[in-house]
Simulated assay, not measured.
Amino acid sequence: MKSKLKFAYILFRNVLIIFLLLEIGLGIFYSYHDESGIDKNTERIIASGLYDESLDDETIKEIHRELRLQDMMWEPFLHYRFKPMNGKHNTIYENGLRKTINPSLKDSATALKIFCFGGSTMFSSGARDAYTIPSELSKLIHEKFPNQNVEVTNFGCHGYTRATENIQLQRELVKNNIPDIVIFYDGVNEVISGHQNNEAGSPTNAYNRKKEFKIAHSYKKRIKLMIYSSNLYRFVTTMQRKLFTNSAYKQLSSRSDELATDIAENYIGLVKISKSLENEYGFKVFNFMQPNIYSKKFLTEYEQKYYEMQEYYENLYRLSYEAVRKDSLMQTDATFIDISDVFDTASKTIYFDFCHTGELGNRMVAYRMLANIQWTLLSKTEKTVTEPETEQLTNNNK
């Protein structure tokens, strides 16, 4: 009996050691693989001609390495927000908001305030601080209204949907941080979250929050999370996909046409809420429906590859967008502006995946935004107090 127990113990110990060594080895491999993958993907982006020729290859690689280093922290009501970051090309303040270049800003307390809400496309992933959509908008305003005192704030964050953005706005209003103009730039994440969760209105990656819920009170959930987050699990599932689908990535299944209607109705309902806040607080709301690679008429060779990689989204995007356009409220609402055609005449590469645009694309979007909001850019008469952006800048060297 003792010999059997000893044999079982030795077997268990050896298996555990093997699994531990495999986990460590795969961890080292994936660390190298992921880091080298950033530069390889960036090299494809460089070859596509997305960036201005004045930018050297190493600078573009730095931009995307910093993008990879961006991290999140818990935030009540929003699920998460950015951690502060003082990068060479990406600056995120202590409050989780990205730096915006404001050449017109003279005095924050009396400035005409423009809040820009959206997901990673409004945040402007892959762009330098000075070339985000909000920064480009601010620079264009300065060119057209050089004497105007204007402060543009970038509230964009990876994965945020219109529901999350409405909460962001309400939290600012509660603090008496009242804007003059509110810009929403949406469409992409509403469809992505609907596709992920197979229901409209849930936050992006909500299924992960469901997995984590009450994990501290359940050993079963802790063990599951440990397994699902292990390098071994990643290796096994990757090999399964390669063997059975000829792809290392998870193939998302198609969704019903009814989901598109639900996505559109959810978006329209959230627009109504923001309009009620507009009436109560006296600011102007602009709802811009954003472009994506499926709405670009002329795809370059590289954009065609991005399109093919995520073609499974196309039907849901087209149906959702069309349902929004056909809604009677959206057709009569002057604050709803469909700019999904903003790149219709563009022959250059605009996208570096199915929705994120380069710096040229950001400027084109900002031009369209300014064309629609410029009539509201009148002098402010009432003072509202807000913390100047210069005081929010994080200093990681302290």
Rank of each mutant, 00 (worst) to 15 (best):
Q196I: 14
Q374V: 07
H142T: 11
E43L: 02
A47P: 02
L69Q: 13
T42Q: 02
L67F: 03
F244L: 07
G126T: 10
E53V: 10
K380Y: 00
R65T: 01
L370H: 06
L319E: 04
N205V: 08
I28P: 00
Y228P: 08
K221C: 04
L69M: 12
L112I: 14
F77I: 09
I181N: 00
E301W: 02
G269C: 04
I92M: 05
L169N: 03
D56V: 06
Y51L: 03
I263G: 05
I46P: 03
H33G: 06
K224D: 14
I28K: 04
E391W: 00
M239Y: 05
R209A: 02
T335P: 04
L5F: 09
E23V: 13
A109N: 12
K210M: 02
N362K: 04
N205E: 03
K88N: 15
I273T: 11
Y367C: 08
R162D: 07
S104Y: 00
E190C: 12
S104L: 01
R162V: 13
Y317M: 09
A323M: 08
I227K: 11
I46G: 04
K250F: 13
D257S: 15
E23I: 12
I215K: 12
M309D: 11
D327W: 01
R65W: 00
I227L: 13
W74S: 14
Y233I: 06
Q374L: 00
M226H: 11
E66T: 03
E387R: 14
T376H: 06
K348V: 10
G27S: 12
E62A: 01
N189C: 12
K6V: 13
T386F: 01
K210Y: 01
K297E: 13
D341P: 07
V324S: 02
I192V: 15
